[in-house]
Amino acid sequence: MSRTRVPVVAGWFTGEGDGFRLLGTRCADCGSVFFPREDTACRNPGCGGQDLAEVPLSRRGRVWSYTDGRYRPPAPYVSDPERAWEPYTLVAVELAAERMVVLGQAAHGVTPAELAVGMEVEVTSGVLNEDAETTWMTWHFRPVVEEEAS
């Protein structure tokens, strides 16, 4: 039986492969960008605009900082208590155009030893967890491979 791929949160990202992007919103009045998306009203206190349009965020950014989770986090994080805990890496990434920092898990297998503050990374589609019917999809960050960087 094949599982259905479902975003862990609707409307936060879109696309596949090189077309994968995080989705935020941008205020039409002042240009402030919001992630997670703000759909009600602009949070710039000097603006107050209510016209917020969906916008894809930059695909690449630079590592602001990173860490990992050596112990199993509590629910609602989903993990199989029957299996040994495998640490995951978290990366906070600075997006230059948006001038903001976004947190995400690193792609599976990327450890803190492979990361450095300032390193270029890119966003990619990733699997958060699977259950009987569903593969829950999320975003991951992974180091940009040198040959691809230009």
Binding site: P76, V78, L103
Partner: peptide
């Protein structure tokens, strides 16, 4: 899913010490 505190655990497994780790690593750098 409307609660940022719920979301950071569900989507990222980001515990409080994870944030402390981010701050510490950045200070080192």
């Amino acid at each position: 899913p409307d609660d940022p505190d719920w979301l950071r655990y569900r989507v990222l497994g980001a515990t409080n010490p994870a944030y402390f780790g981010l701050y510490a690593r950045r200070r080192m750098a």
